[in-house]
């Protein structure tokens, strides 16, 4: 461990590689986490199938890539398809569990996650797949730092998508309806908002965001039918740390998590890369607990 830290201090240039890789992948984490925060905040559904939505989006882009469509063009298609899929899932499953207790919706989405992973496995097989963008790779500092163009593009696209979603939530009628429903569904209903439709739209929007994140992940990382759970855990960690309704927080937490993972992998070894994520979740929960206790004492 100390050997690895000394590499970073002796040759600081490798920090740049770690930070860049972390930011690039962190951006896609933030995207998926924002979708989760939306569904969680508006509908109070903790969507355990979040990771599998991401992976499904990846498979759509990958499959289109195999048909000769560049995966970057596959991304908008993935967004549309996943939107439709999300709507369908809402009508068939989520609508029936949304006003039941927490445990029911957890079970339902967990079941959905298993079915989706197995369906992907049956359709595409268990191999790891990657969508190839065939863009160049740039090297800097005598090949010590390499940046693939596709990662830069993916990072920019994440930013664009985040801005679009924010503008949509702020300015469109549907965005306002979603925010109103999140604040008080009963009042919203009294005001004539069709909350059922709002829920369906929110869930579908989340699936679409995951579709985008997945398409990008298939281009910069790898996908496999059973990799969903890792992405779901990351999204939960990010939302738990940032809280919902806090978009800057989600973005910061997402990017931070990406970078932390890279440092965890470098310093502690690859076996601790994902352990870093779970370790962070525990740390966040403990910190939250302490904070809340302090808050309670103040109230008393």
């Amino acid at each position: 461990m100390w050997d690895n830290i000394s590499i970073l201090t002796a040759a600081p240039v490798f920090n740049i590689q770690l930070i860049l890789d972390g930011l690039f992948i962190g951006a896609t984490f933030a995207l998926a986490a924002y979708g989760l925060a939306l569904v969680w905040g508006v509908m109070n559904v903790k969507n355990l199938a979040q990771g599998d939505f991401v992976i499904t989006g990846g498979y759509i882009a990958w499959w289109l890539g195999k048909q000769g469509i560049h995966p970057l063009w596959g991304m908008p298609i993935s967004i549309v398809v996943m939107f439709g899929f999300g709507w369908l899932v809402y009508i068939t499953i989520i609508r029936r569990v949304i006003d039941k207790d927490l445990f029911t919706s957890l079970l339902a989405t967990f079941g959905l996650a298993i079915v989706m992973a197995q369906a992907l496995n049956l359709m595409f097989g268990p191999e790891v797949q990657t969508a190839e963008s065939d863009y160049a790779v740039r090297s800097y500092f005598n090949n010590s730092v390499t940046v693939a163009d596709i990662k830069l593009i993916a990072f920019a696209l994440c930013g664009v998508l985040a801005v679009v979603v924010v503008l949509f939530m702020k300015n469109s009628r549907m965005g306002q309806a979603i925010r109103a429903t999140a604040q008080d569904p009963r009042a919203a209903r009294v005001m004539g908002i069709d909350t059922d439709k709002v829920y369906a739209f929110t869930y579908a929007l989340n699936a679409a965001i995951c579709g985008a994140a997945g398409a990008l992940i298939s281009m910069i990382w790898v996908i496999q039918p059973f990799y969903g759970i890792g992405h779901a855990i990351r999204a939960f960690v990010i939302v738990t740390a940032a809280g919902f309704g806090n978009l800057p927080g989600v973005i910061l937490a997402g990017l931070g998590l990406g970078v932390m993972e890279q440092y965890g992998g470098f310093v502690l070894g690859a076996e601790f890369q994902q352990a870093t994520v779970v370790g962070l979740l525990v740390a966040v929960l403990i910190w939250r607990q302490i904070e809340m206790r302090r808050h309670r004492q103040v109230v008393q």
Binding site: F14, W221, G230, E261, G264, G265, G269, Q274
Partner: peptide, 19 residues
Amino acid sequence: DKMPRDLNDISSTLTKVKA
């Protein structure tokens, strides 16, 4: 290094290889 079961990224290991 030992890689985890959900093995979708070994870039930090490869950065060490570069170093």
